[in-house]
Write a protein that binds this DNA or RNA. Structure first.
Lengths: 263, 263
DNA sequence: TGAATAGTGTCTATAAGACAATATCCC
DNA sequence: GGGATATTGTCTTATAGACACTATTCA
């Protein structure tokens, strides 16, 4: 919709659940500009895959509220800044990463999600390969990498837990456990239809490495033969002609992602 | 993320694309409260199915900008109002409808989408059966029903057109053609995995009526035998024991939706 | 009886899972 | 050669599409 200073619908505090009867007329005359506006922020779930699990980058909160807890990289949206640009800026400033696959996830707007004031957060998720992810994590103080523990199967959805080194739990700030859960749900939903897995791998990879990534995302073992057939038939893969080196078995062919698409 | 008046990251006008180097320190000291905030609104794509096409309810704009164009029902989000409540309120006040299937779609935030000021719109879509949809459309002046013309196949995505009675085009305000397009894309994506089609039908319906709805959403004809098998095996359907009446052929059994789920 | 759609049964094509056999590397 | 994984090929099973046939209602 659009701003309607000059007359049309809007909403002020205190009439959230008003009845339909007679309300329309009231709303017609309502001027939203007279009321305080919520803050708008972006939060980015930066994910990678390693050791059979998804991992996320989190930032330690040194101030109240949620002091000592861990939060997703986030920041307020500039008044003239597109939402995706804000997400990219947050990734660049907090993790030093750019050029990643980034996609909008969901907008979280419960009035109580931040104890101080109303903050509406447009959540994004971003995918990066293991090497760049590790570099980002060691970039600055106050950053940590957590392993996602998903307490549900398939695309059920719900919050997830984060575990740091040594199984130590990383308590999450605000509703960030929900955001991470939604990122996992989205990844699982897109896995079979969109070239998602490639975003978690370096430019060239073997079919088994790709299968491990898919198993990590979906949370279940996959049939090797069927996976190979599906991937080769998908049109997403391109043989590089190179082969694995320095392995103590027959080296596998390396493939690369054939399309630039990010859908 | 969260408001960080007391110290942490944020973003002010004019540094949208700053480089990562040295930026972090600046952002740490940034106080977002000092700057103007964007407006936040909800827009709702209210959809129904009739005559083999999807239809949407739109509102005529009587004021600038986009005067004379048609907009989705929308309104500003109250400072203490949850986003879904705002979406429901808009549906109640503009269309007089409540209790519908409503789901968040996408958040549109391009700085130029409204010519007057920055408005970030959290878009929702809602589904309703043909009868209630018709009632809603005749509820007030300035409302119209348009037939969606989808110029792409499958889940390609992109804006759609709206045609009123007599093929007359209904020009859409702002980015509302994109919102409607995203609603269609989402519907198509969920059709096979979630009980979506039922939301467009009255409480009881025949298998052929359900098939027509699925064909309307997906935009392609479906195999009757396979559709019947899939639906009966899905666990979503429950036979009512009733049969069609007043048809000049063998009456079909009526079914109802077996689960309340809206996923 | 005829028109029209509902509903059932069967056959075929396609894709996934299971499994066997061979290939290629390092030790 | 032995160990390990890659790669190919075949067989089986589940599901979707195609099609034939019977059932039931109203005109």
């Amino acid at each position: 919709m659009a701003v309607r200073r000059s007359g049309r619908a809007g909403q002020g505090p205190g009439v959230a659940q008003a009845q339909a009867t007679g309300e329309a007329a009231f709303l017609e005359a309502y001027d939203p500009g007279r009321f305080e506006r919520p803050s708008v922020a972006v939060d980015v779930a930066l994910l990678s895959a390693a050791g059979g699990a998804l991992h996320a980058l989190v930032v330690r909160r040194d101030e109240h509220p949620a002091r000592g807890r861990w939060a997703l990289p986030g920041g307020f949206v500039g008044l003239e800044e597109p939402l995706e640009v804000a997400a990219g800026r947050v990734l660049a400033s907090k993790a030093g990463l750019s050029g990643l696959f980034v996609e909008q996830l969901f907008t979280f707007g419960d009035p109580g999600r931040d104890p101080r004031t109303r903050v509406i957060s447009v959540a994004y998720y971003a995918l990066v390969d293991q090497a760049r992810f590790g570099d980002a994590a060691s970039r600055a103080e106050g950053l940590a990498v957590g392993r996602l523990v998903v307490p549900w199967e398939g695309e059920t959805g719900g919050p997830v837990e984060l575990r740091g080194p040594g199984e130590r739990a990383l308590p999450l700030a605000f509703d960030h456990a929900e955001i991470l859960g939604m990122a996992v749900k989205r990844l699982r939903g897109k896995l079979d239809y969109a070239p998602i897995g490639f975003q978690l791998l370096p430019p060239s990879f073997t079919l088994l490495e790709l299968q491990r990534v898919h198993e990590t995302i979906s949370g279940r073992p996959l049939n090797k033969d069927s996976f190979r057939r599906r991937m080769l038939a998908s049109g997403w893969l391109e043989a590089t002609g190179e082969r694995q080196a320095e392995v103590d078995h027959r080296p596998a062919e390396r493939y690369r992602f054939a399309r630039r698409s990010a859908t």
